[in-house]
Design a protein around this nucleic acid. Sequence first.
DNA 1: CAATATTATCATGCGATTATAGTGAATTCT
DNA 2: AGAATTCACTATAATCGCATGATAATATTG
Lengths: 135, 135
Amino acid sequence: MLSGTAEYALRAVVCLARQPDGQPMRASDLAEQIGVPRNYLGKILHDLVRAGILDSSRGKKGGFKLALRPQDLTLLRVVSLFDTIGVGPDRRCLMGRPECGGADPCPVHHRWKDASEAISMFFEETTVGDVLSDE
Amino acid sequence: MLSGTAEYALRAVVCLARQPDGQPMRASDLAEQIGVPRNYLGKILHDLVRAGILDSSRGKKGGFKLALRPQDLTLLRVVSLFDTIGVGPDRRCLMGRPECGGADPCPVHHRWKDASEAISMFFEETTVGDVLSDE
DNA sequence: CAATATTATCATGCGATTATAGTGAATTCT
DNA sequence: AGAATTCACTATAATCGCATGATAATATTG
């Protein structure tokens, strides 16, 4: 449902959003806290920086921090860097019928569309702020 | 959203369900019809046989056929052989909190559950018979 | 029984994802 | 200035899913 890499990214982002005053956090600490191999997490964090989701700073008091307010960062923006969520524009019918679309849907087309859109909507509409809301 | 293998299996099963009188179909014919590499499909079909979804017979008039009535075969039973759909019993929280369950859900737990259950429900409640219903 | 057709199974290659190692560059502190 | 710390980047290895090909086992037919 979600690749390991995407899930790591999500946890890292949420963990950073919990930092008081947006204080930066070192990659090693982050890796230990969320249980992800240190070097691998480094690569993921770097991807997040290049996407503008995180800011990084080097040196003694450096680390990673969120570049946006949590409530402005959707889960989709994080996850879509690593996975393709939901049914893309070129996604064909579940049953492999190329002609299955608006005009000539297969019997299960609508039910499948509803279900898969529920997933897309979740990632589109949920923000990191929502995840934090009760802590 | 669904692995290639699972999708192949789904198409093969649907194709077999369309056979008149449950006549067996050879792996090669099936492979050609649904556009899947012959040898690879053989492996998938074998998996379906071991799961009790298909019957196979060797020799001159052999082939594969459904072992159940289409309306008694859910898509979940086919797909779950190859993919894990939705949130299984041991599936941890989306955010990686081991304690996230019924009693102490994280803020997005319910929304995530609703969305992912829409997918599970689709596969659980849709049968091969449903897919065939308009032909 | 022999010939043939078909599934069953194993061994292997390929590519994407996942993970590791190591070097270089920037920042901070003394 | 110099040392320590930390991210940036590249190269490489390990793992897994996907796909192919060849061979063995089994059933049907005559």
